[in-house]
Computed example of a mutant assay.
Amino acid sequence: MAGALAGRTLFVTGASRGIGLAIARRAAADGANVAIAAKSAVPNPKLPGTIHTAAAEVEALGGRALALRCDIREEEQVQAAVAETVSAFGGIDILVNNASAIWLRGTLDTPMKRYDLMQEVNARGTFLCSQACLPHLLKSSNPHILTLAPPPSLEPKWWGPHTAYTLAKMGMSFATIGLAAEFGPQGVAVNALWPRTIIATDALNMIPGIDIARCRKPEIVADAAHAILSRPAKGLHGRFFIDEDALREAGITDLARYAVDPSQTPLPDLFL
C-alpha cells in the first residue's frame, strides 16, 4: 500500500491528536497533502497536540500540511477552511469525518449544553463538512468520504446507558447511509469505519475505569483507514467497516503490533 495516497489531498477533522492525527500521519507517509482542521490552535495542558504540532509531524513524515483552526459547528469556518484547502492544494480528494464529542452519562446526568455539543459536532458537523467538501470531491478522480462512526443499530443496549451520545454518534452513521445512497452512484466512496476494540486516546478520560493496557493504539484505525482510502472509489459505498476486518481484506492479519500490551486481551468497543 506504500505511496497509494501520494499527491492526494485529505481534509481531516479533529486531526490535532488521537485517531485523526494517526490517520493524517499515515497519509503523510505516502506523500499526501493533509488539511488539519481542528479547534486546538494553542497548547492545552490537559490535551497534548495542536494543529501546528500535527502539521509539523505531517511534514516531517514527507507530506504537505495545512494547519486550519476550524470549529466544525460553525458553517463559515468550515467553508473558509475548505476554500483554503482547495486554494493551497488545488482540490480535495478525501474527507475524513473524525471530529467527535463524547459524554457517557445517563439522561438525568446530561446537561443540555453537552447534548447540544454532541449533536452539533457529531451529526451536524459530519453533514456540514460533507456538504462543503462534496463539490470538490465530485471533481476528484478517486473521491472518498470516511466517517468514524459505528454500524447503525437500534439495539436498546447501546441506547439505554447514554442516549444522548448514542443519538449523536448514530447520527453520523445515518448520515453515512444517506450520503452513500445519494453520492455513491455518482462515484464517491462514502463509508464508515469503527474500531473492534477500545482505542488508547485522550477520549478515554471520559470512560472511567478503562485499563489502558487492554487497549489498541490509534495506528490500527489509521492503517485500516489507509487500506479503505487506497481502494478505487467506484462501487465502494455504504459500508460500515470494522478496523481489523478492513485490514484483513488488505492482507494484514498480524494485529499484535497494535496492542498497547500484547499480552492482554483487547477490550471490545462501546458499540460492538
Rank of each mutant, 00 (worst) to 15 (best):
G3R: 01
L5W: 08
A6Q: 12
R8I: 03
R8D: 00
A15D: 04
S16W: 04
G20C: 00
A24I: 00
R25H: 04
G31F: 00
A32K: 02
N33Y: 03
V34A: 01
I36C: 12
A38I: 05
K46C: 05
K46D: 15
K46N: 13
P48Y: 05
P48H: 09
I51G: 08
I51D: 07
I51F: 11
A55W: 01
G62M: 07
R64Y: 04
A67T: 04
L68Y: 09
L68G: 09
I72L: 08
R73Q: 05
E76A: 15
V78N: 03
V78T: 01
V78L: 08
A81C: 02
V82I: 09
V82Y: 10
A83F: 06
G91F: 02
I92T: 07
I94S: 00
N98M: 01
S100F: 02
L104F: 14
G106R: 00
G106S: 03
D109K: 11
T110W: 12
M112S: 14
R114S: 14
E120V: 04
V121H: 05
A123W: 08
F127V: 12
Q131D: 14
Q131L: 15
A132R: 13
P135S: 10
P135K: 10
H136C: 11
L137N: 04
L138R: 12
N142P: 00
P143L: 03
H144I: 03
I145Q: 06
T147Q: 08
A149E: 04
P150L: 05
P151R: 12
P152F: 02
S153R: 01
S153Y: 03
W159S: 07
G160E: 15
G160D: 13
P161Y: 11
A164S: 13
G171F: 11
S173T: 02
F174K: 13
G178T: 09
A180E: 05
G187M: 02
V190P: 00
N191E: 08
L193M: 08
P195K: 06
I199S: 00
D202Q: 07
N205E: 14
M206R: 14
C215H: 11
R216I: 12
E219C: 06
E219H: 10
H226T: 03
L229R: 10
S230P: 10
P232G: 02
A233M: 04
G238C: 07
R239H: 14
F240K: 07
I242W: 14
D243E: 11
E244H: 05
L247Y: 11
L247D: 05
A250Y: 03
G251Q: 04
I252C: 06
L255T: 01
A256S: 14
R257Q: 15
Y258Q: 06
Y258M: 06
Y258K: 08
V260E: 08
S263E: 13
Q264V: 13
P266W: 09
D269E: 14
F271Y: 12
